[in-house]
Amino acid sequence: MGIDLEKVDRIIEKYGNDATLCLELLQEINGTFRYLPREALVRVAEKNRTPLSQLYAMATFYKSFNLTPRGEHEVCVCMGTACHVRGAPRILERAEEILGIRAGETSADGKYTLQTVNCLGACALGPLVTVDGQYHGKLNTARVEKLLRRSPDEDAQEHN
């Protein structure tokens, strides 16, 4: 699958060859393509003369990076302590059942990616789930069902 390397080049140009900005550079590529395409990493390695192994180490070390394409919609279940004691494991399990995928996976139709995070920092509202960056707090299994059963597109319309 080819990607738009010009986009990658523009990002590389923006950050230049500054080691301190390497993480930022990868963040932006990850944000632009919704994952870190291998071709993009190879490109960064060539242009910035950064060892590819180093980029691969970063890409696999940090949680915010994905090496496979993420789904159209990202569902993220917070597994922080405050959420845990208020039933986050049940919420995750329900989300897995509804979406038919396990945490860390993307649905076959490319519509959803289900992820977990170790704390989103909105602990007073636990259990907490974000859908495409939107926070949904004080959930229970029934509300998760409502949240995920309707498509996020409808959700977006409602928000507009």
Partner: peptide, 18 residues
């Protein structure tokens, strides 16, 4: 720097890129 560590925690390994 042809090889590096990859992943972290219990998944950590030494690896060539990808």
């Amino acid at each position: 720097r042809a090889v590096s560590f990859a992943y972290r925690g219990p998944q950590r390994r030494v690896s060539a890129p990808f």
